[in-house]
Design a protein around this nucleic acid. Structure first.
Lengths: 247, 247
DNA sequence: ACGGCACCGTTCCTATAGGATCTTCGATCG
DNA sequence: CGATCGAAGATCCTATAGGAACGGTGCCGT
């Protein structure tokens, strides 16, 4: 129908729909637990129900939507207290390992390590220095964010926080680990949007401490730093479970 | 068409197709990297292409099939050496945490722990003892398997090994951790089927050592035991990477 | 008044047909 | 002889229509 405007598409319609619906859920354009009508969504996105169905199937694997057979899809409900605790534990497991791994890479480079890597020591060193600088830049950003308030500020802060943690996981060098961290992140994002909290300065300080520990090449210090950060962040979110019965 | 035979289906057709295709890939009914024709698959399963497409979308999220836009789906290619190493590292991260967690639960029960759990101490204790017995039973099974040879024996061994590790992850009490372990397992299963190896006795011994460590309630011992097991298992699979260029 | 039952609207689920795209094969030119 | 261009085949992707099941509502019986 309107495919004529993009003759050489590299991505299929279902992929676009996937991103759109994902954005819809992540931005709370559809409330948690709300029913998702396939036909209505198809009309809204101006596509046929088939690619919508395909996109929803993928989103269900990601845990962002839930499917009840012969009833329909619903947006993922908010995390219960138990699920929140499990999420925190998973983050501790994955991100501690991630931070340790990055620190180990720096330690290996610092002590000379093996020079038989194809890239050559100098370039690798420069690459690592660049990585550290990039991490530090992402860590510092929350502290420099404009003093905007309200929903947009929360969303921006959350996105920035996600960038830092994703970058850290990516730099672990383990793609599976990175993917696992990203997957978990979606749920926390939803939770944060529903219970807005932003501790710009605190978050930036803790992030910088993690980066510093990594820079020294000490896996234990890096692990401790990120562990403290995750636990502190969890504590900051904990009050929202008091006095709401959805947990 | 033939839905009349199951009037009160609790599962949709796409779910059945998902399981079927998953079994097809897991049993190497379709070779790794082989192209998957949607229409052909639909005819073979006697359904329309739509649910097949939906099932493939979910399988792609699981990493079992790959999709190239406007080209088609292909069965997941075999793990490269790099991916295998990453898989081993992920298993170390997840399953070590899992074993530690189970051991901690036993330690808490043994030392009396908190008695304010709603189930009551006695029942919880009996439950834990039952869990340990169940784990031990699963761990011992590989050593008692019939001396069958060939593909079926390999498949049976692999399935039994998977049951033990899945049960261990499930008993960690963290559903997300369990899901993550199960997800990783699929890839290892494919790899094993392509390079058949079975060390029944060795595997059973190592499993029992893990169970024993858990029974003592010592997280460090449990972590060490499963770490040794995973590393040993990885070493047993390593030779298959020598002299094949698909890595 | 309360529980069980039947009806109806809505929605999902499945099947089929047509348009667009990529791959492959063959012919042609340098 | 190799490379490039063009066309045919196969496949995927999308759109639309019809059948089946579930949830809600009103009625009836106890």
């Amino acid at each position: 129908m309107k495919g004529l405007l993009r003759p050489a598409r590299r991505t299929t319609l279902a992929d676009d729909v996937y991103e759109s619906v994902r954005a819809l859920v992540m931005d709370h354009a559809v409330a948690p637990g709300e029913r998702i009508n396939i036909d209505a969504l198809a009309r809204r996105l101006e596509v046929s129900p088939t690619p919508v169905r395909e996109a929803l199937a993928r989103l269900e694997s990601d845990g962002l939507v839930r499917k009840r057979p012969l009833v329909g899809y619903t947006a993922a409900p908010l995390l219960t207290r138990t699920e929140f605790d499990e999420l925190v534990e998973m983050r501790l497991i994955l991100e501690t390992a991630s931070a340790r791994r990055v620190a180990e890479r720096f330690a290996g480079q610092r002590t000379g390590g093996d020079t038989n890597s194809g890239d050559g020591g100098g370039e690798a060193s420069a690459g690592l220095a660049g990585e550290l600088a990039e991490l530090r830049r992402e860590a510092e950003l929350p502290d420099q964010m404009p003093g905007t308030e309200g929903f947009a500020a929360i969303a921006a802060f959350t996105a920035q926080d996600a960038r830092f943690h994703h970058l850290l996981a990516e730099r672990s060098g383990n793609r599976m680990l990175h993917a696992a961290v990203v997957r978990l992140r979606a749920h926390l994002h939803l939770f944060r949007l529903h219970f807005p909290t932003a501790h710009y300065g605190t978050s930036a300080r803790e992030h910088l401490r993690i980066v510093d520990a990594i820079g020294t090449g000490d896996p234990d210090a890096a692990g401790t730093a990120i562990r403290d950060h995750l636990l502190a962040a969890a504590d900051r979110h904990l009050p929202f479970f008091q006095g709401n019965r959805c947990g």
